[in-house]
C-alpha cells in the first residue's frame, strides 16, 4: 500500500470527524501504529479540531460545576445510563469509590448494624436478668419444698403428741411413777396403765442413753414374779410415749432394767434403774 496515497484518500479526515466506518477506523488505527506519518496526520487534524473547540468555547453556567461535582460523587453507583459497551471500564474502576457521600444502602446497612448491636445488648442484659431471677426462683422453690416437708414432719409429730396426750389424759389411765433405785438416784420414768384395756404406755422422764448393744426393758411384778412388758426404744426421740405389752393381772410394781439388746426372759436385778409401786 502506498502510504502517501492512503493519507490523501480522505480517510483520515473522515476518521477524525467521526465519519469513518468501524472497519475503516480499525484499519487506520493499525496503519497509524505502523506508520508514524499516518499518526502524525491524525494528530494534526485532531489538534486542529481541538483548536476549533477552543474557539467555540463557552463558559458553562457558574452553578453547573457544583451540580456535576455532585453527580460525580454518585457516578460509580448503579445506573447503567453512562455505560458504553465500547468504553466499559475494567475492574480498576471499582477499586476507587466516590469520596464524597454514603449511598442509601450504606446508611441502611449502618442503621441495621446499630439496631442489631442494640438488640444484642438488650438480649444480653435481659438474659442476665432472666438468669438472675431464675436462680432466685429456684432457690425459693427449694426453700418452699423444704418448708413444706418440715411442715409435714411437724404436723405428723403434732398428731403423735395429740394422740399421746389423748392417751395419757384418758380417765381410765393410771400413772405409775418409777423413781431411781439406790444405785441410780434421780432417774425417772412413768408408766401409764389403762385400767380398761390393760394397755401399758411408757414415758422416759430421765434415763441415760443406753450403751451400744443394750436396751431398757420394762417389767411388771405380778404376785412377786417379774413379767416382761416389752422393750423401750430410745433411738427415736420423737417417740416419747411408747406402747408396751398388754398386762393383765394384779401388778404390784413396775420396774426397768438394762438388758442385752433384744431383751431377756428374766430381769438382771443388779441392772435395775427405776421402780415404782402401783
Amino acid at each position: 500500500m502506498n502510504i502517501q496515497q492512503y493519507i490523501s484518500s480522505g480517510i483520515i479526515e473522515n476518521y477524525v470527524l467521526g465519519l469513518a466506518s468501524s472497519e475503516e477506523a480499525q484499519e487506520l488505527e493499525r496503519l497509524a501504529a505502523e506508520h508514524p506519518e499516518v499518526q502524525a496526520a491524525i494528530d494534526n487534524y485532531q489538534a486542529s479540531l481541538e483548536q476549533l473547540a477552543d474557539l467555540y468555547a463557552v463558559q458553562p453556567p457558574a452553578d453547573l460545576k457544583t451540580k456535576i461535582w455532585e453527580s460525580l460523587s454518585h457516578a460509580d453507583e448503579g445506573s447503567s445510563r453512562y455505560d458504553e459497551p465500547a468504553l466499559q471500564a475494567g475492574p480498576g474502576l471499582q477499586e476507587q469509590r466516590s469520596p464524597v457521600s454514603m449511598s442509601g444502602w450504606k446508611w441502611l446497612a449502618a442503621a441495621c448494624l446499630v439496631l442489631l448491636i442494640g438488640s444484642a445488648t438488650l438480649n444480653w442484659i435481659y438474659f442476665n436478668k432472666y438468669r438472675d431471677y431464675k436462680e432466685r426462683y429456684d432457690a425459693m422453690a427449694f426453700n418452699q419444698q423444704t418448708i413444706l416437708a418440715d411442715n409435714q414432719v411437724y404436723k405428723t409429730r403434732l398428731e403423735e403428741f395429740r394422740q399421746d396426750m389423748h392417751i395419757m389424759m384418758a380417765p381410765s389411765m393410771k400413772p405409775v411413777v418409777m423413781q431411781g433405785v439406790k444405785t441410780h438416784p434421780g432417774m425417772m420414768a412413768t408408766v401409764y396403765w389403762d385400767q380398761n384395756s390393760k394397755d401399758v404406755y411408757m414415758v422416759v422422764n430421765n434415763l441415760p442413753a443406753p450403751p451400744s448393744g443394750k436396751q431398757y426393758q420394762l417389767w411388771a411384778i405380778i404376785d412377786g414374779k417379774p413379767v416382761s412388758a416389752g422393750l423401750y426404744d430410745m433411738t427415736d426421740p420423737s417417740k416419747m410415749v411408747q406402747k408396751m405389752k398388754n398386762i393383765q393381772g394384779n401388778v404390784q410394781t413396775f420396774a426397768i432394767t438394762l438388758e442385752q439388746k433384744g431383751g431377756s426372759s428374766t430381769p438382771t436385778l443388779d441392772q435395775m434403774y427405776v421402780a415404782g409401786n402401783v
Binding site: 488505527e29 501504529a33 491524525i42 494528530d43 485532531q46 481541538e50 458553562p60 453556567p61 453547573l64 451540580k67 456535576i68 453527580s71 460525580l72 457516578a75 460509580d76 445510563r81 453512562y82 455505560d83 458504553e84 468504553l87 466499559q88 471500564a89 475494567g90 480498576g92 474502576l93
Partner: peptide, 25 residues
C-alpha cells in the same frame, strides 16, 4: 447542554480507566 455536559463528565469519570493515550490525546 447543561444536562449533556453533566453526562459528559460522568462518562469521563466512569470511563477514564479505558482511555488509551496511545490512541489520541
Amino acid at each position: 447542554a447543561r444536562d449533556v455536559l453533566q453526562d459528559v463528565f460522568v462518562k469521563i469519570w466512569r470511563n477514564i480507566q479505558s482511555y488509551d493515550a496511545g490512541k489520541g490525546r
